[in-house]
């Protein structure tokens, strides 16, 4: 009966979802050929860090959110941590210091409000043992058209295993680093249509500074600075998170985890995952240059 005692189900209640609050794990790598997007955490490194701190399976699901963060009520005691973007917390009405990567023990009915994120764009709330929710096509990640909910809404609840045992934390806290603050260069590879680009566009890609706009979501991060208009045309082709598309109007779009699996714009660059984890966290307007390797 020990298992039953430990696995008593409890729940997290969303009092206010804030922006883009969803449940994410590593996502769905299979099923791409029937147009299922990857989904999964935007900054996988921060997802893994939350799970590492809590000694969870690295692929355990976490709450992912943008700024402003959600307000959450935990109906039973548990242990959580927050990673990724710098988060200021209000616990039962009292502000507490930035608590990234700290291990927080919660009592039944504790309410946590996460205020505006101050550095970075996506934060992760991990819970010891992970959240319990139905896996659809091998993942708990919420995704439009795949899971019943495409994001968490006020009043939604997610179950977790209540914790009647003491969590044995390792003694040293992983120091929060916020490495995206210092990024000035993002390394990219040439995409399949790079070779079709006119000389002028290639020169600008190598010498100009760029920045992401604030119109970002889980599908894509558009780039503010326009390249010259162009007449490149392709037939609908496979796309992957990390590809940079170029529209006829000269707009570049970095595709992210919820991107469709095929697209009709030229795929001019590709950003691999370690760089992408930084790119998604960068502030809108933060200048960078591409280093095409």
């Amino acid at each position: 009966m020990k298992g039953k005692y430990l696995k008593k189900s409890s729940m997290l209640e969303i009092l206010d979802p804030g922006l883009y609050c969803s449940l994410q794990d590593e996502g769905r790598v299979a099923q791409g050929d029937i147009a299922v997007p990857f989904s999964g955490a935007m900054d996988r490194q921060s997802l893994h860090l939350a799970n590492h701190i809590l000694q969870n399976d690295l692929n355990a699901s976490c709450l992912e959110f943008a700024s402003p963060g959600p307000t959450l009520k935990f109906h039973y005691s548990t242990t959580i941590t927050i990673t990724g973007a710098k988060a200021f917390l209000v616990l039962n009405g009292k502000s507490i210091a930035p608590a990234n990567n700290a291990i927080l023990s919660l009592k039944p009915d504790d309410v946590i409000k996460i205020k505006t994120l101050e550095s970075g764009s996506w934060a992760y709330l991990g819970i010891v043992g992970g959240f319990d929710s139905e896996k659809v096509l091998g993942s708990q990640s919420l995704s439009p058209g795949i899971t019943v909910l495409s994001g968490l809404l006020k009043g939604n609840t997610i179950n977790y295993s209540s914790q009647d045992f003491l969590f044995s934390a390792s003694s040293s806290r992983v120091k929060p680093a916020f490495p995206w603050e210092k990024v000035k260069v993002l390394k990219v590879r040439k995409g399949p249509e790079f070779s079709l680009l006119p000389e002028e566009i290639i020169r600008k890609l190598r010498t100009d500074s760029f920045s992401f706009t604030s119109e970002r979501n889980r599908m894509a991060a558009p780039i503010h600075e326009l390249l010259p208009a162009n007449r490149l045309e392709i037939l609908t082709s496979p796309i992957f998170p990390g590809m940079v598309q170029l529209t006829p109007g000269g707009k570049m779009i970095l595709l992210l985890m919820e991107a469709q699996i095929t697209g009709g714009y030229p795929r001019i660059l590709f950003m691999e995952e370690p760089q992408r984890n930084l790119a998604v966290q960068m502030k809108p307007g933060q200048k960078f240059m591409f280093e095409i390797v």
Binding site: V29, Q31, S237, P238, I261, T262
Partner: peptide
Amino acid sequence: LLRAVSGFHNLGLF
């Protein structure tokens, strides 16, 4: 081979 995605004239292999 985890993912194989077709376009009209190409096959993306992940």
